[in-house]
Write a protein that binds this DNA or RNA. Structure first.
Lengths: 328, 328
DNA sequence: GTGAAAGCGCTAACAC
DNA sequence: GTGTTAGCGCTTTCAC
């Protein structure tokens, strides 16, 4: 089998026109109705598909959009990716996916691969600082950040959930229930949220109760278990992501802390299993898919004037994992 | 800013050699030690990165590997994707991701996009039959199927979990607990498993208890709820995936069926939340990441002789969602 | 061991 | 409205 694909030249010959005409017709340029008709027919007959290879080289840039994510295994990023994919699909653009593991170096590698491929538009959940992104900027790559921004990237538009609002609502809810010793269990790149947490809590903040994990499940579990053991006096936790929430539930169970009796828990990111958990988890829902879709939209219409950023609303969904402060 | 990237010609000139020499040096061909040294130095100085665009056109094929998945939102496919990505990363190859939604037509579109890009190697969880894949075959594209095979694809290698064994173990476990009316809640492309289910159950099969959902959560829920309402006499369910398991738990809860007292449940695919569920779910674990990794490996060494397929083991992990048949 | 040159498929500038 | 042609960056003969 293994038939050679028809090229523009084949079509041109078969239709008795020049290659330029074929190119024009296929990209909607001007041509007489009859020529257009003929070219289209022949192209269909030959099952001609313009080669992106030729076009890309000629135009000095690959189409398509790059997508850089910390971890496809995390369902939040899965949903975000889904948003990007549906937007890209609507535009007929391929998506090149790379994962960074929240590691700046790995991110730099992935950026390198994209650059090498001639990709000029990327949606990223950034891990590295401005230095990592410098080669990309220099090449004129258009980036849009999603879910979080990064230090030193003043002019890269970002599509974010309203972390500030989400944190505030969650903290208010918790303090309203009487909680005073509230912990924040964070992951990579959550400076924004922690700042909001500190601000919302005001004088109540206890820096020992603000802990960070790296991106992995293990690290999240270690952080949660360590926190709970070190400070058995805390009565509520805000987990900054579904991996962290999962870890908190696991660690609490392991240490025989009953939720919500001994410990109230709010998790960032509403995942399907939050409802299946015992007790069902109260969460701050983030529109993961929308974030991805909007970011892809932004990067695709790179030509027009782009807003500095987009802020999408979060929502506190109260289920059963928070209760009044224990008498202790 | 927006600096033009250095080309091979720039390097050649700066090093005082011909472009061919630069190309040879960079791809490990023969050159005198001193020439090699000089070229390498200059290339580094100029921060030269060979353009994949030029290479691809010249070689009439894009590097990289295509990845076609039903749904990135499903954590099983997320893990599978992760496996593919780590293998691809090790090889320095980009991955082009597309989702099919378990729809043959959408799959055909995605294949079209890949072909247009000149991608010649793809890992896919196939949805369509041989007809959908015909254009791909004709172009000489190398495919490896993952997680499931498809009808009429005799010679496409596939990396599969041992569904047959997994189903048998699960069914044996259930019948050993005394269950007789066991349902199978299936998803798209699970013909293999259902066949194994029928075989394992032998005379006990009740065709009314074998139901299928499409890929979505809604559809899964509808199928589960419908099944439970129509046949309140069933005492055990085998759910063919984590979405289906999730739906089964939800539907059972909605209909006040207690797990495992009224209903025993086994879910295909071990997901982190299976442990957090109340009760913790007994599952048939599948090595999702390995499946992806192995498939990617196979497609990358397309040159050598490739085995017809790989079968990876599954494992029954007993937790708390199965009990003896209710007295009823 | 090295360089010159052809050419991959396409688009855009230019001539008619 | 249409054809001719140059050339994008690279690899790969083919001479030397």
């Amino acid at each position: 089998m293994n038939m050679r694909r028809a090229t523009i030249k084949d079509v041109a010959e078969a239709a008795g026109v020049g290659v330029a005409t074929v190119s024009r017709v296929l990209s909607g340029g001007s041509a007489s109705p009859e020529t257009r008709e003929r070219v289209l027919t022949v192209a269909a007959q030959l099952d001609y598909r313009p080669s992106a290879l030729g076009r890309n080289l000629r135009q000095q840039r690959a189409g398509g959009i790059g997508l850089l994510l910390p971890d496809v295994t995390d369902s939040f990023y899965g949903r975000l990716a889904d948003g990007v994919l549906s937007c890209a699909r609507a535009a007929g653009e391929p998506v090149i996916l790379g994962t960074t593991g929240d590691d700046a170096e790995r991110e730099a590698d992935q950026i390198g691969i994209l650059l090498e491929q001639g990709v000029e538009r990327v949606v990223a959940v950034p891990s590295g600082d401005a230095e990592v992104w410098a080669p990309a900027r220099r090449t004129g790559l258009t980036a849009v950040f999603a879910h979080r921004s990064a230090p030193g990237h003043g002019d890269v538009p970002a599509v974010l959930a309203d972390d500030r609002g989400g944190v505030r609502t969650a903290v208010d809810y918790l303090t309203g229930l009487g909680h005073r010793r509230i912990a924040y269990l964070g992951g990579p790149g959550q400076e924004q949220r922690v700042a909001a947490f500190r601000q919302a809590l005001g004088a109540l903040v206890d820096e020992e109760l603000v802990v960070f994990a790296r991106g992995s499940r293990d690290s999240a579990y270690a952080a949660a278990a360590g926190l709970f053991q070190r400070r058995p006096d805390l009565t509520a936790v805000l987990a900054g992501g579904n991996l962290l929430g999962e870890a908190a539930v696991l660690a609490a169970r392991e240490l025989d802390l009953r939720v919500p009796k001994d410990l109230s828990l709010i998790m960032f990111d509403d995942v399907p299993w939050a409802e299946l958990c015992a007790p069902p988890l109260t969460v701050v829902a983030q529109p993961a898919e929308d974030i991805g879709y909007r970011a892809a939209e932004l990067v695709l219409r790179a030509g027009g004037r782009r807003p500095r950023g987009v802020l999408l609303p979060t929502e506190l969904i109260v289920r059963g994992s928070c209760g009044p402060r224990r008498a202790s």
